[in-house]
Design a protein around this nucleic acid. Structure first.
Lengths: 193, 193
DNA sequence: GTAGCTTGTTGAGCGTTGCTCAGCAAGCCG
DNA sequence: CGGCTTGCTGAGCAACGCTCAACAAGCTAC
């Protein structure tokens, strides 16, 4: 019986291995708070020793920060407006895609937000970077000056949006278009003062 | 030299001990994410063995959940309107006291919110209970029916408030009364649709 | 082909930390 | 003094993050 079902290639290139490990982290995200990913579990799933994981990520924190960043990049890539989009439609489009994203990856997204808000400063930083980039794009699309006041307001509106959309996906209290209109309306009223 | 400086009473009553341990947790909160409180550290500060802590709190989770709940109760006690307050002033008063609370206990409060949002479901539950109670009081004071829609809106507004107040304490972009007026205005416009 | 280099990979092991358990001892009652 | 309750401890286990010396796969050079 020489027919080993998965003749698992023993040696991978460094890039392959890193990508695989991060991928495993992403798959584990929805079911496990980032910081509670255990090196043992990840290594087991990858079919490697714990030591190898520490070869690629010097510290456990390095590892789950990388996983968090990968999750954030996936979301950003999906949300950011396409290069040619008209300014006026950028916010509407991002909002629409954001709701779609939360609908599609509810558990993962919740895990990302939670893990981000929770405890670890490194992970929080990744989250804040992501949020700040989205806010910057929104400010730009709204043709607003990028001052502290507007930035605070839009950021807080983003918190509002995150919370409301999260609740809405669990219990839809209004039709989807109405949700989008409400969010857009709150934002417009906030920044036109 | 029989003058032991602190003739630490060796035996405490169960209630005393519990209270002391929770108190130590509260003191550690601002500097340490709840879940990262180590049993060793707490026991050392209390001058007892690790084992005793496990006698009072079967599990580490039990312990820091108790600490979180104590923090939440402190805040609730400070925010909830006094028994005789007029309905119309309850929301304004709570809002005012909330901003005051964040100003006074910035680090502790941030630690509470973070620890709450982060990872652990037990802690998240304490946070959600606290938030729900505040939302319920607000809904009552606004004389709104306690339906899912209004509850979602007020809860999301609370997320907005939490975020904006947090940012504002770090970088005050407007006078305090204006902040209060803005928050109140956003809430009113939200629920009168 | 084999010597030698790079580098992906491992196993043994250490320190910390959450948690268990058997048992000591302080205070109270008879 | 004997016996009971109960606050309390020390030894020790298992899991986990992390280190380190060394093995071995795959490539190039002679």
């Amino acid at each position: 019986m020489t027919a080993a079902p998965a003749p698992r290639p023993l040696r991978r290139s460094a890039d392959d291995r890193r990508a695989q490990l991060v991928q495993i982290g992403l798959e584990l995200l929805p079911t496990t708070p980032v910081q509670e990913l255990t090196i043992d579990e990840v290594a087991r799933r990858a079919g490697i020793s714990r030591s190898l994981l520490f070869h690629y990520f010097a510290t456990k924190r390095d590892y789950y920060t990388a996983v968090t960043r990968a999750a954030a990049d996936l979301m950003l890539e999906h949300l950011l407006p396409p290069p040619g989009a008209a300014l006026a439609e950028q916010v509407t489009g991002m909002l629409d895609r954001y709701v779609g994203w939360v609908e599609a990856y509810r558990e993962s997204h919740l895990a990302f937000v939670r893990g981000a808000a929770g405890g670890d400063p490194w992970v929080a930083e990744v989250y804040e970077e992501t949020r700040d980039r989205l806010v910057a794009v929104a400010l730009d699309a709204l043709e607003l000056p990028d001052g502290p006041l507007h930035r605070q307001l839009v950021t807080a509106w983003f918190a509002f949006t995150e919370d409301l959309v999260g609740q809405w996906t669990r219990e839809p209290t209004m039709p989807r278009p109405e949700l989008l209109a409400l969010l857009r309306d709150v934002l417009d009223r906030l920044v036109t003062r």
